[in-house]
């Protein structure tokens, strides 16, 4: 009987912080930033793999635009960073160029870029995560998988965000190669979806703002934004990342994320 009671207490200890989200009056332990980060990850675990067709619209300070198109394949890796392989198809001069990323929680990410004209697969330095992805306002780290262990968290407050209520979560990256001092994210309390993120550079000045819209739910569980808008406040440039199509559970495996796969033209 005693043992059983202990188990119930344990279960409650885990469940309570979460239920406190739904109705604040029940809150026993105050919710921490780490709790929010863990719950965000938990609600986006188990999707397996997805393939997406995306378009990036790059805009410079003068409002001139340029389009990039890419197909994205992502494999979920439990207990480590995800794997992804991106095939570029537009503009045509970069058709066939492909990027393989194997991200890790506790060690450096691995990345290879395939250059079809030379048939050469080139390793990229792990410190490139702060660099722009394909000339866009998204850096490599902005597009890599969310892993709880990669940052330290502080829950700043809860406030209204549009029609929803959001946690305002500050995360400080642990990775020395990160381009940011901190990020501040607005995460809705209903589904733990990121609605907005502000990125602060190493001098702690606001660098970029990302807003995410058109969330759709897949497999009755997982939410994905179909529009992401990144604005760089310092350069006046911006990038829209539009997801046209997304398909989950394609049966992808490790072998679809190897160097030989980079070279596929079909």
């Amino acid at each position: 009987m005693n043992i059983k009671f202990n188990q119930i207490v344990k279960v409650l200890a885990v469940a309570l912080p979460l239920s406190s989200v739904a109705s604040a009056s029940l809150a026993v332990t105050p919710l921490s930033g780490l709790d929010v980060a863990k719950e965000r990850k938990l609600r986006d675990t188990g999707w397996g793999d997805y393939q997406a067709e995306t378009t990036m619209i790059l805009r410079n300070a003068h409002g001139e635009e340029s389009v990039r198109k890419l197909s994205i394949n992502v494999l979920e890796v439990l207990d480590d960073g995800d794997k992804s392989i991106n095939f570029f198809s537009y503009p045509k001069d970069i058709k066939g160029t492909a990027l393989l990323s194997v991200s890790h929680i506790h060690s450096d990410d691995e990345q290879w870029l395939y250059l079809p004209a030379l048939k050469r697969t080139k390793r990229i330095a792990s410190s490139n995560k702060s660099g722009p992805f394909m000339g866009s306002e998204f850096s490599y780290e902005d597009l890599s998988s969310f892993e709880v262990e990669k940052s330290d968290y502080t829950l700043l407050r809860q406030e209204a965000c549009g029609e929803l209520t959001c946690f305002v979560l500050e995360s400080v990256p642990k990775d020395k190669y990160s381009g940011y001092k901190k990020r501040i994210s607005w995460i809705d309390t209903t589904h733990y979806r990121v609605q907005k993120t502000e990125f602060y550079d190493k001098r702690d000045t606001l660098l970029k703002t990302l807003t995410l819209f058109n969330y759709k739910q897949y497999l009755e569980t997982y939410w994905r934004p179909h529009t992401m808008k990144m604005i760089n406040h310092q350069s006046g440039k911006s990038t829209d990342l539009l997801t046209e199509e997304i398909r989950f559970k394609n049966g992808l495996s490790d072998s679809d994320f190897s160097q030989t796969q980079l070279k596929r033209v079909f």
Binding site: A125, N128, S130, P132, D201, S235
Partner: peptide, 14 residues
């Protein structure tokens, strides 16, 4: 050896 500085001087150049 190849040494790369990404986003040098906040310019976006590599």
């Amino acid at each position: 050896v190849e040494y790369t500085q990404y986003g040098i001087f906040y310019s976006g150049f590599d």
